[in-house]
Design a protein around this nucleic acid. Structure first.
Lengths: 101, 101
DNA sequence: TCAACATATAAATAGATATTTATTTATTGA
DNA sequence: TCAATAAATAAATATCTATTTATATGTTGA
């Protein structure tokens, strides 16, 4: 893995490093969702959701589409879910304190 | 994936969100390395390497072992490399601008 | 056009984090 | 014991980021 590739991986990891952003990613993974739908479902303030969506857009992990007054956000790549699953599994194992994996 | 699992994933992702830490992880993935070996190989200052190793230890992603005056760090779980590879692949595809993955 | 709604942006704040420089602690060979 | 090496910690700084509150922009139906 080259230096550039490592930097790219770090950049995406940074986008995945916030719990609220992960909630958003998982929520929109079942299909495009409007901002207001996200706000309601996750019980976060609208500006906070917009802020996180902006960050996710900056890292290209979401695709955006306007439809009338609504703006829909969609997961850009399903492998992001795979990453979250692996990280969750690894965290579980690491916290269990076992010595070998 | 539960809320706790998402929080755990976010916590690990935060540890993966720095380029220098990823360099360290990849370097030690070929076997335990001393701090000074890491400092030389990556051309980073010794306190900076210690700082990042402390962070990696906090997230349990490295195992630590002292041997005389040397302290050796080792990757705690090889699936972390899988995560980095996927993130790198995804970043490449997202930056290529293709619409479907 | 205007009121109502959807979303984005601005500004302020508080807390986190990467890096540098300087110092301390720990270990060992002479 | 002491000098030299390995590693960790402290302190300072500068930057970044999550969140809140307030406001602006954009869209549509009446």
């Amino acid at each position: 893995m080259s230096r550039d590739h490592l930097q790219s991986a770090a950049f995406l990891a940074k986008s995945l490093s916030d719990g609220n952003r992960l909630k958003i990613l998982v929520f929109i993974s079942s299909g495009r969702k409007s901002v207001s739908a996200i706000v309601e479902a996750l019980d976060l303030s609208q500006p906070l959701v917009s802020h996180h969506l902006k960050e996710l857009k900056r890292s290209l992990m979401v695709k955006v589409e306007r439809d009338g007054p609504f703006v829909y956000y969609e997961l850009a790549d399903d492998r992001i879910l795979d990453v979250l699953q692996i990280l969750s599994d690894v965290a579980t194992d690491l916290l269990s304190g076992r010595k070998q994996f």
